[in-house]
Structure formats: structure tokens, C-alpha cells
Design a protein around this nucleic acid. Sequence first.
DNA 1: CGCAGACATAACGTATACAATAACCGACAG
DNA 2: CTGTCGGTTATTGTATACGTTATGTCTGCG
Lengths: 250, 250
Amino acid sequence: MSGSGQMAESTSGDQKQASVSGGKKSGDKGLDAIYQSVSDAIIEHRLKPGARLREDALADVFGVSRTGIRKVLQRLALEQLVTLTPRRGASVTRPSVDEAKDVFEARLLVECALMEAAAKRITEADVEDLRNMASQEQKALRNREQQTAIKLSAAFHARLAELSGNRTLAGFVSQLCSRSSLILAVYGHSGHLGCESHDHENLIDLLATGEGVRAGEFMARHLKSIESSLSIFEEPEETPDLRDIFALND
Amino acid sequence: MSGSGQMAESTSGDQKQASVSGGKKSGDKGLDAIYQSVSDAIIEHRLKPGARLREDALADVFGVSRTGIRKVLQRLALEQLVTLTPRRGASVTRPSVDEAKDVFEARLLVECALMEAAAKRITEADVEDLRNMASQEQKALRNREQQTAIKLSAAFHARLAELSGNRTLAGFVSQLCSRSSLILAVYGHSGHLGCESHDHENLIDLLATGEGVRAGEFMARHLKSIESSLSIFEEPEETPDLRDIFALND
DNA sequence: CGCAGACATAACGTATACAATAACCGACAG
DNA sequence: CTGTCGGTTATTGTATACGTTATGTCTGCG
């Protein structure tokens, strides 16, 4: 999915405006696709934390100019997936220990609270969809496709949050899940994914039976178990530590 | 509105304003200052919802080229303060009824929960600072400077969230407060500001005495009273409503 | 032989130029 | 008089070019 995925701007001729009542916001031509590709690559750990993302290289790969790449990079930076250093370019964010703690604290607070609303609003189709996602995730895990599993797990949690009907909070959770994927990459043990057990299936069961409170409690345990499975140690190598170490004023 | 000095980031130096084309010795871009100016103007309702933000006009006003303006606009768009319509440019977001509901629901969930952590971590200096902010807000209200009061109110809530120590959630609350300011502009009664009473002072008292739970409950009442003071009615004029009205499938 | 300073290179930041598209207005026909 | 079609204009989207800065290397001097 990387590389291709941009519509060719060949003269389509009779592309009249049938968009009076058609597309939602399909204005972004190929930039959204590029964003998705890069985002997926980061979430799937194909781009590891600390990897440098040169604008020229990305522009070359995706066949657009640096202008578009900069837009994508900026969006990723606002979502905290990449870090933009003033004169040094972009790199995949390496979450700090504090960031990791904050992210999981936020998830604990928001995702659990959202379960009650989700339980009230969930439909049969939603349950079907969620079971499908969970099954795909399990399959990926069995096939040792950790990258895919991580992405699917994040998508599952994001989908869950969407059920609440609150788009604002759902978007926030989606961001948190993406960042969690980065945290997994840095502080997680290789070969030991967070959502390894059948927690997601259990979660679906609770929601399907309308047990919102129980689902929230279960989600709390689920997230705590993920967090505790991480080995959050202070990293010896942190670039801006120098000032701290030597107590130099800025 | 041009040339309003903002707080300088601690990262590297300070930049007064965007200088004319030529040597920018500051190196670091002054785009953050432009962002702050536009953001403040929106939050203070000097730019009202629906107002169009032409790139050329902004570029001319701030003395930079459209490139920088686009970056600022995009950031504002990701924070939902401006809406970017594909070929029509940027305009100040006019929050829908659903958005307003979502935002206040999110604030209710997050801000209240954060009060407990804030009560545990608050320091004397924080209390001093908060009282100062609340006093400024009251002064602005007495002087009928609604614009300033609205901005200060949003800043107060954002500052409160910062006390929790969770930067991720604090940033989220800050966004929600900015959006709330927009909601106030659309659905609030003129001459009747949300945080009119002395709720903020009471909130500080509760936090200063370590009553986190009480503070959370008070915050809940506070936010609900703001929300209920709004007149959230269905807007008769919503561009995409046509599909809804005529039940045209997409 | 080691360090320091300068130069070259490469990557980012900004501006400008070009192209595409949608809105607006005028003209013409029914 | 009205509706529709075509042209014009204005504004955004994209690309490219240029300037700035940081980094790495090379050379000269101690």
C-alpha cells in the first residue's frame, strides 16, 4: 500500500462536476493517501521511533513535491506521531516515559468512561463489525504478523470509541491509540504484544449484552495490563537532556 | 491586530514579528506568533464564526507569504477552529449542534476527572496564579470586555487542566476550551457570558484545600450551567442540510 | 599526531510563480 | 422578462527555486 495510491492526473476528459451532492470532503487529492501510508507505516513499526523522515526522500517516493510532504508531516506532528525539529527535519517520535504515562492515563480515563455510552448505542451491525476486527487481529497474531496486529488493535480501540457517538472524544482516542502503538514499539517487549489475550472478545460480549459499567471496568483492567506489560525505564539517551545534566540555563 | 507580542517559547530565542522579506535573523519562524494572533482573534470573537480567512489577505496583514499562512491555517483546522473547504478557502468554524454537545460532554468527562489530580498537585504558586487569572477575568467582566473575558475564561480552564500534570490531557482540554469559545459565540446569548458568577473563585478554594472530589463535582455543575445557558437550537441555515431535508442518499 | 577552523554539501524554511477550479457576471435566446 | 450558457476573475493547490543553516570532512598548524 505504500508508494502507489495516488490518482493519476491524466486528463480524464469528461470529469464534470457530479459533486454537487456527492463526495463528502474528497478535496484532498492524494495527500490523505500519503498521510495514511506514512501513518500506517509508523503504527506498524515499519518506521521505527527515531527514524528520520527526509522531505526529499518522501517526496521522491510518493511522487509529489515537498510542499505536500510538508503538509503531511505537519499533520503527523500535530498528532504527535512525528517530531519536527526546527532545522533538522522530521523523525518518528520517540515517546518519553512521561508521555507514555500520560497517554495511558488519558486512555484509562476516556476509554473506560466511553464504554457506558457505547453499550447503550451499540447495534447488531456494530457487534458484527467488532467481532470481525477482533478475529482479524487474532489471525494476525497467530501468523506472527505483529505489525498488522498492532495496527488492528489500535483500530479496534478507536472503533470502540466511535460507538459512543462523540466524535470529538473518538478522535482523541484514535490519536491516543496511535501514540500507544509508538509506546509499544519503544517500551514493549519484542514478541509480546499488549492485547494478546482474548480481552477484545470479552469486551465485545459485555457491550453486546449492554453491561456498560462492567465493560468500563474490564477496559480499565485491559489497559492497565497493557501498561504494566511495558518496561518503562529511563532512557539513557535523550537529546535534550544535556541542559538538564549540566544545569546550563537556556 | 498585527504585531501583538506573545509569550516566547523557551526553545530558542524570541522573535518579535515577521519581518519583511529579506533577512530573518531569528531563524526560528515567527509563524507561532501569527498562529497565536489568529487564534486569539477567533477566541475573542473578533473573527466571528463563518468569517472567511483569505490566504492573500492574511499574508498581506502579517507580512509573510501564503506558505506560512497555509501552515497556520492548517494547524487551526486540525484544532477545529477553522474549517478548510477544498476549493473555497478557510473560514472560522461554525460549530454544529452535535459538535457543541460533544465538546461539552468531553469537557464534562475530562475536566472533572482532572480536578482530583489537580487538587493533589497544586502548589501555592499555582493558587496565586489562578487567583490572579480569576481576578483579571472578573475585572474584564465588570468592564464589559466580553471578548477579553471569554479568552481569560478559556485560559483559566486550560490552566486548571495543566495542574493535573498530564500534558496530553491538558492539551486536549485546551482545545476543547477554544472550541467552547466558538460555541459561545454561536449559541450564547449576547451580554450573558458563561462563567459569569464566581464559580472560578470557588473552584480555586476547593482545590487549595485539597478537596479534589468536591472540586470535580463543582466543575460538573459549572460546566452544566454553562451548557444549559446556551440556546442550542437547530440552525435553519446549514449548507449540507439539504440532503437531510430532501432525504437524498449520498 | 591531534585539534581547530573553514569549506563544501545537503537538507530545511520561505517565497514566488504557475495552473486549475469554482464563483460571479453578462449576454443571448426563448 | 426569464433562464441558461459562456466568459472572466478571483482564490486556492501545487511545484519549483532560492536562501539559510547545520553537519561532516578536509586541511593546516601547533
